[in-house]
Amino acid sequence: MGKRAGETAGGDGGSGEPEGAATPTRRRALWVGGGLLAAGAVGLAARDELRHWWWQLPGNDKPRKPGEVDHRGARWVAASPENYRRADRPADYDVDRVVVHVVQGSYASALRVFRDPAHEAAAHYVVRADGRIAQAVRELDVAFHAGNRAFNERSVGIEHEGFVDRPESFTDAMYASSAALTADICRRYGFPADREHVVGHVEVPGTDHTDPGPHWDWDRYLRLVRAELRGPGPRPAKT
């Protein structure tokens, strides 16, 4: 988690006209082709932008119930609205990533700072050493957890109690409970349990964080996630 994990937007690259001489006919063809391509790009951009705001019109957003959770058995502990952005995922933003974090502290301290509006960061979930799971932000919404706006919009963030330099932080109960949660997320959004789609905070572009650190056992974790996916379905989280 660290000091802050808000949203940082990346820049867009550009491209110029190809170099070299061209006949007037060729120039006209390039211009017309470029114009058609530009119109197509504008159309796609407009459609994508429409996805991001249509749900805000009355009656279009998904129904919400106070205290409702996305992972069965998780305990609801609401983050401050300043630490996430209301959305309607996956209708407006596709979800295809899980980002694994380590708190650098306790379960209780993570939930405390997520409730603090001045913190400007929160993850969707926090997993305790004994396997208990708290949900602080609905998966519908964009939590400020990765330090990268595009990753925030496409991912679910899971914090884990403990410290990156203390391997004893990562208990059997924590691995099992977190793996069941990640499998549930993969199943619901339809993306695979692999290292492209289940990543550490350290792998997010532009981050200065190192979690989950060298002691997080990725092979073990993904084996557990895949075993859960082969099972009959989500099981209750420890309460």
Rank of each mutant, 00 (worst) to 15 (best):
V32L: 13
M1K: 02
R28N: 14
A29R: 15
R85P: 04
E7A: 15
V142N: 08
V198L: 12
A123M: 04
V113C: 08
E19R: 13
T8L: 10
N60K: 15
F163V: 08
G20I: 12
V204D: 01
G231H: 10
A146G: 03
H119T: 08
D48L: 14
F163N: 02
A29I: 15
W31F: 13
E19T: 11
A173W: 04
A110P: 09
H119R: 13
R166T: 09
L36G: 13
R149M: 05
G34Y: 08
L37F: 12
I185W: 00
R27W: 08
G33K: 07
S169F: 01
L36F: 06
S109T: 13
G20V: 00
L30T: 12
A237K: 03
G2Q: 04
G206D: 07
R115N: 11
S80N: 03
V142W: 10
L37T: 11
H119G: 01
F191V: 00
F151K: 04
K3Q: 11
P214L: 01
V69K: 01
H119I: 05
S178R: 01
G67C: 06
P236K: 09
G6N: 05
V95H: 01
D70E: 07
S15F: 06
A143V: 01
G200I: 01
A5H: 06
G13P: 09
D194F: 07
R97C: 09
I133K: 02
T210E: 09
L44W: 12
I185M: 03
V142T: 15
D184L: 00
K62S: 14
F114Q: 06
G40A: 07
E120I: 11
V156A: 02
S106E: 01
R4H: 08
W76C: 00
V113A: 08
Y189A: 02
H201Q: 11
E159T: 11
